[in-house]
Structure formats: structure tokens, C-alpha cells
Design a protein around this nucleic acid. Sequence first.
DNA 1: GCCATACTGAAGTCTTCACTTGACTATTTC
DNA 2: GAAATAGTCAAGTGAAGACTTCAGTATGGC
Lengths: 113, 113
Amino acid sequence: MATSMALRVGKVDRILDALGDTTRRRIIRLLSTGPMSVSELAKPLDITVTAVTQHLRILQSCALLTSHKNGRVRMCSLDATGFETLEYWVRDCRTSWERRLDRLGTILEEDDT
Amino acid sequence: MATSMALRVGKVDRILDALGDTTRRRIIRLLSTGPMSVSELAKPLDITVTAVTQHLRILQSCALLTSHKNGRVRMCSLDATGFETLEYWVRDCRTSWERRLDRLGTILEEDDT
DNA sequence: GCCATACTGAAGTCTTCACTTGACTATTTC
DNA sequence: GAAATAGTCAAGTGAAGACTTCAGTATGGC
């Protein structure tokens, strides 16, 4: 990222930055089948537990994931909070210009490439 | 990205990769107020038109954006298709383990960090 | 207590990808 | 037709960040 970024990024930006990585998406897919520990995640992903921890921190910081440590084992599960935030954004994003289309649809016509 | 990636990525993966960039999100926010040309986008973003074109290609390849060239001017607008795909994914993702929580909620209890 | 297990932290490497520049191809206007 | 405008293409640069390794800190079992 050559752009400034990180300077006052909102919730949604942090969520989309987090989801913009293959490994983190794979973590989410794994967890959608049920809670898993750090090393249980590392195995199928075929990366070190350190790498997993780093991803967990990011996913947790934008409320896509929660974890609680039980003894020496950290158990991870998905967090609805972040997904709800994202869902609202996507819907807003879609409807905002669908409304515009409705308004204009009857008035204008399009030309194609 | 040090991971292999790009080897058989699905629609949603492409969408989330696209949205995982600040500039592309800013393009989407600009377009949510109405269609704009390439150079109209470049101005507020404060990057070259070349850079904008590159982002447009990516956004278009995952159906977040459509454009039609009218003379020498390319007009860009958002495309509902990609956003719908994403909305479904987010919802699925959320509900999949909310159902699990419902099933387990009455049976087990949690312990905290 | 001692060894194994489960994870965390700091520091370094290496790849990807966002952006630029410079040259080129339409279109529009005069 | 020349000049200006709008955009595209190819190639190169720089930085962000996804990994790794190695060392360190709990916790659990013997």
C-alpha cells in the first residue's frame, strides 16, 4: 500500500483490509465450522503458529473474531459484530445508488461500450 | 501476499481482494454519489489517471463496477452484481455459526480470557 | 522439579502490488 | 489538419505486510 492509509480508518475499512487476505479468509472459513485453537488452525493452513497469531490479532481488532484462553490453549470463534457492520455497509452501498437508478431510470437512457 | 493465491480464487475472494485496498474503496464511495469519468475520479483521489484505470480494471473484473465509453470519455458506475454476491457471503458466513451457537447455547457454557 | 506443549514477541526476509513515468492511440475542437 | 483532451499500455520503483526463525513465557502432566 503506497497510499497514506491507517490515518483515521473507520471500522469498515479495517474489516475490509482484514478480509483482503487469503489466509485470513481461510481462517474464517475454518472457524465457520466451529471453534478451533491456534495450533489446530495452523495445521491445515500449513503456516507457523506465529503467523496464525498475527492474523488472529488483526481479525480480532476489527471484531471478526473472538478468542478466550483456557489454560494454555486459545480457542477462537467468529464474532458476529464485524460481519454485521460489513453487512450494513454492503447494503447501504448497494441501495445508495439503486435509489439513484430508480430516480433516473425513467428519465435517461444509456449508451454502451 | 506470500501465499500462493490466485490459484482458483472464487468470486468472493476476488471481491474481497479488490475491496482490501483504500483507494478502490474511495473510488466506490465516490461512485456511490453518481457516475464519474476516469479523470473526474483521479482528481479527488490525487493519483494519475493511469492508476485509476488500473483500479477500474480490478473493480470491473469482479463486477463491483461497470463502465461504458462514450466518445473518448469512459463513464463509471457501481455494479450491483458484485455487492449482491458479497452480501450473500457475509450473511451465510454469519448465519452458519449463529445456527451453531443456537444449537450449543443451551447445552454448554463458556469460560473467559 | 522437569520436560513437553501452546502460545507470544521481536527482528529479519522477500514478494506482491500500488503507483509513477513516458510513449502511444483515439476522439474532439478550432 | 493541428492542437488539445481522454484514456491506455509497458516497464520500473518503492513500500507495505505476510511470512519465517529464534528466543521467551505460561500451563499441564509425569
